[in-house]
Simulated scan of single mutants.
Amino acid sequence: MEEDLKTRLENYRTAPFDARFPNQNQTRNCWSNYLDFHRCQKALEAKGVDSAPCEWYERVYKSICPGSWIQKWDDQREEGIFPGKI
């Protein structure tokens, strides 16, 4: 399993099709992957486990989301006013 994940990350080019978001508008896909990354990272770090499996979500949201949105959400998380549940 771990080898398969490493292979996927090495061969990653852009976000693959996700059946949960079949439409052209990928806003929800961006938001979901941003939240999934931070939830995954928080959960694995709390257990003291390496958070490398979370890199998939990070690569997906970084390839889909506009940089200004990511910066805004990161700033909001730092200030404690982020609207999402992580």
Rank of each mutant, 00 (worst) to 15 (best):
R77N: 09
F37R: 00
H38Y: 14
D74H: 08
F37E: 02
Q26M: 14
A15E: 02
E2I: 03
V49C: 03
G67I: 08
G84V: 02
S32R: 08
A15I: 01
N25F: 15
F21V: 01
I70H: 06
F37P: 01
A43L: 05
N25I: 11
A19P: 04
W56M: 01
C30G: 02
P53V: 05
R59D: 06
A46H: 06
Y57R: 06
C30Y: 04
C54Y: 04
P66Q: 12
S32A: 15
Y34E: 00
S51T: 11
L44F: 14
D18L: 10
P16N: 08
Q26N: 14
N25Q: 13
M1G: 15
L5C: 13
W31E: 09
K72P: 10
E10L: 02
W69I: 01
L5H: 15
T7L: 11
K6W: 11
E58R: 05
S68L: 05
A15C: 14
A19E: 07
S68M: 07
R28Q: 15
N25W: 14
E10P: 08
F37N: 00
D75I: 09
R39D: 06
I81K: 05
P16K: 11
C40T: 05
N25P: 10
K62D: 06
A15H: 03
Q24H: 04
Q24P: 00
E78A: 08
T7Q: 15
H38M: 11
P83D: 08
S68D: 14
D4Y: 13
K85E: 09
N25K: 15
G84T: 01
V49I: 10
H38W: 13
S68A: 10
A43S: 05
K47D: 14
P22D: 06
S51I: 04
E3Q: 14
T7P: 07
T27D: 11
Y12D: 09
P53K: 05
R8L: 14
Q71H: 08
Q76M: 11
E78G: 05
P53D: 12
G48V: 10
R59M: 07
P22E: 07
R39G: 08
F37Y: 15
W56L: 01
E79N: 12
L5Q: 15
Y61N: 03
F37V: 00
R39L: 08
E79Y: 04
Q76H: 11
D74C: 12
E3N: 13
S32C: 11
N29S: 10
V60A: 14
I70V: 14
R77M: 13
P22K: 09
F37D: 00
F37A: 02
